[in-house]
Each structure stands twice: as C-alpha cells, then as structure tokens.
C-alpha cells in the first residue's frame, strides 16, 4: 500500500515537473522577443511533451516525438528562422 502511494507520488512529482516545463517554455515560445530564442524554447517544449508521452506509458510515441519533432521540425524551424531573419540574411542564401 505504502509502496504504491510512494510510486504514485513519484509519478505526480514527475508529472508536475514535466508539465511545468512544458507550460513555461510554451509561454516563452509566444512571448520571447528574439525569434531564435522562441524556436529554442519550442524545442524544449517538444522534448518535455515527449516526457509526458513516456509518463503516459507511450514510450514509442515519445521516441517518435523526439526523432521527428525535435530532430526534424525543430531543425526545420531553426532553419526557417535563420533564412528569414533580415540581420542574418547577408550571403547566407543565393
């Protein structure tokens, strides 16, 4: 009984941690002044969402989330930021 409770509390703590991370960084995504910073916060958000999947016993989806979202879309958005920011434009494309 006790052990179950402890496991439950541990789970709750993990959930609190991961969800706080998710919410804080997703707020950063829409409020950060710098677009690069916003996109990096997005990547952190995506990683913590992967954590939530693992908490939900969906480890495979968590892996896919990290592979595709963080690895693919995250990098893509970083590229988008780099390619479409005026200050960084000089000589980067064309």
């Amino acid at each position: 009984m006790m052990a179950v409770d402890i496991a439950g509390i541990g789970e709750l703590i993990m959930f609190a941690l991961v969800s706080t991370l998710t919410i804080i960084f997703s707020i950063l995504v829409v409020t950060a002044k710098d677009v690069v910073r916003a996109s990096l916060s997005l990547i952190v958000t995506l990683v913590s969402v992967a954590g939530i999947y693992v908490l939900l016993n969906a480890q495979f989806i968590g892996m896919v989330q990290i592979l595709i979202y963080v690895g693919g879309i995250g990098v893509l958005i970083l590229f988008a930021v780099m390619l479409t920011t005026q200050e960084l434009k000089g000589g980067s494309d064309d």
Partner: peptide, 15 residues
Amino acid sequence: ELPQNLADQSNIEAI
C-alpha cells in the same frame, strides 16, 4: 490502472 504490457513495453508491436 495504466495498462502495462511487459512483453511489449513501448507498445511498438501493438502500434
């Protein structure tokens, strides 16, 4: 209780 399939921990097979 959250379902736990010990033989297929990450649900890859079911998916």
